[in-house]
Design a protein around this nucleic acid. Structure first.
Lengths: 79, 79
DNA sequence: CTGTGACTTTTAGTCCGTG
DNA sequence: TCACGGACTAAAAGTCACA
């Protein structure tokens, strides 16, 4: 799962969601939503986050199976 | 560039944009826009396209530098 | 420090065409 | 077969107050 990977990396580097948000130029609550897998993020924002973590775009995707959402209004979208 | 990579792979496999669109469950005009780098695709649709091309998500990202857009209303967004 | 619901603005994505 | 456009709808971006 992508969000989990992001959170894992963020914590590993000792950042808060606030920290990462500022580094990536995004909003604090948005980072939270992405980490919880509630947002179907675009590649542009994905790039910003990955960049803020000093990673390459494919780094967080290796274990990211990426199942598609089942329900019409999923709480988690399964990243 | 992501769009170029997609196009390259699509042509290598002998598909039209229409073919790929149908395989991926997306619209034909949309595939064109993505290949031309005019749309900031979501990860979900990126996954669909990659899947339709029988690739893994990180495959098309290796050479994808991904510069962020300069202007407010860019024609190309630089994927 | 983080989760969440509600919300507005912006853009992703579709569908109809044309040359 | 594809690029491109206009008009449209669905969904993402982005922000906030509060728990």
């Amino acid at each position: 799962m992508l969000g989990k990977n992001i959170r894992h990396e963020r914590l590993r580097q000792g950042f808060s969601q606030d920290d990462l948000a500022e580094k990536a130029g995004l909003h604090r609550t948005y980072i939270g939503m992405v980490e919880r897998g509630e947002r179907n993020i675009t590649l542009l924002n994905y790039a910003k986050i990955v960049d803020a973590l000093n990673l390459a775009m494919h780094d967080l995707m290796k274990e990211s199976v990426y199942p598609l959402p089942q329900s019409k209004h999923p709480k988690r979208i399964g990243l």
